[in-house]
Computed example of a mutant assay.
Amino acid sequence: MLSTVTHLLAIALGFVALSRSADRLVEVSSTLAFRLGMSMLTIGMTIVAFGTSAPELAVSAVAALEGSGSIAIGNALGSNIINTGLVLSVCGLVTPLVFSHRILSHEMPLLMIVSGVTFLLMADQMLSRFDGYVLSMGLIAYVIYLTKRNDNQNNEQNNEQNNNDSDSDVVILPLSTSRSIVEVIAMLVILIGSSKLLVWGATELARSFGVSEMVIGLTVIAFGTSLPELAAALACVKKGLFDMLLAMIIGSNIFNLLGVLAIPSLLSGDLPLEALAITRDSMAMLGLTSLLLIIAISALISSRRSYLTDTGVGVNFECTVSRFKSGLILAGFVVYMVVLAMTF
């Protein structure tokens, strides 16, 4: 009884710390982006996305070193499924999401490509060390891409105030650049610490009910390590920073696949995969990502201006994802959870 109370208390304290730190992280990250002259896309896909994925990274590293590869794989795949199927869809049900066409036309296809390549690497039911090298090299290429993309966006926006996350929408705190950097690091540390507290409490409760490691990785740990994304995403919605929201989800998912998923094979060598990890979990991840891409394409097509326009007319336009379309993504997630419950 005492241990159960302790675990529940850990979950409650972790949730409070997570929510508060995530809200502050969005504000300070917005300020830092402004101070450094970075676009909101870049700050969302780097500092916030990579930072909120740090719990997945830590869990996968520890699991791999302790010989629990199923937890590491389940954590990476489960986190992506939850980020897309739950976090993003819940935000879209709270309010219709309005994105700039840039993130839908450039970043979403990139996520689809990374997801497809990852699925192909896992299709032989083996995550080899070579696969780990391929994924980690992809992460390096992705970071280089983000750096160049930020430079291009800054050049494009020199004489423009476009994007639905424009300066008028961004919360700029009276903080210096150095203070902003310190606070971002501090908030990330709190995010990671509070998520670890949540994962510990939830995992111990799950184990007390005899749940297997694979299911723990796909559910309890994946949910726990995705809580930073959920908290930060809801904070973005509250502040109207929709591009940062989607950038964070896309960046986090790419980091999970290219970084977190590479860790088990790099640390442990060739790692056999359960058949269900391919036919159920990888397919679910690929399916939800494909659905999101289809919704993104439909939003672009239905927009008043063509996203193919390279001149001033088409640079500015926004795309809306309705609550109904967000509900479709959530429905896909619910179907996966039902299948998971029936097959674990």
Rank of each mutant, 00 (worst) to 15 (best):
F15H: 01
D23W: 06
V16I: 15
S136N: 00
V182R: 10
C319Q: 04
T4C: 03
Q125M: 07
L32Q: 10
A10F: 13
G116I: 06
Y336A: 05
F209G: 00
A72V: 04
L93S: 04
G217P: 04
N152H: 12
N162H: 10
T219K: 05
L8R: 01
S3P: 01
V189W: 01
A33M: 02
R207E: 11
L234S: 12
S268H: 03
Q161N: 14
L261D: 11
T343N: 12
V170H: 01
D124C: 01
S265L: 04
S168H: 14
D167H: 13
N256Q: 05
S178V: 14
K239A: 14
S70K: 11
L88G: 03
V339P: 00
V215D: 00
N162R: 13
A206M: 02
L36R: 12
C236S: 14
S302D: 12
S326C: 07
H7W: 14
V339L: 15
L97E: 04
V143F: 14
I11H: 01
L188R: 02
N152L: 13
E274N: 13
A58R: 00
L93M: 13
G259H: 10
L218P: 05
I294M: 14
V260Y: 09
G287Q: 02
L300F: 06
A72C: 05
F324Q: 07
S68W: 01
I190E: 07
L18Q: 10
G92F: 07
L13G: 08
S178C: 00
G92K: 06
S29K: 05
A275P: 07
G312I: 08
I81F: 11
Y145E: 03
A235D: 06
V199I: 15
L36G: 04
F242Q: 11
T31W: 08
L36I: 03
L88P: 05
S21T: 04
G240N: 07
S176M: 02
L111Q: 09
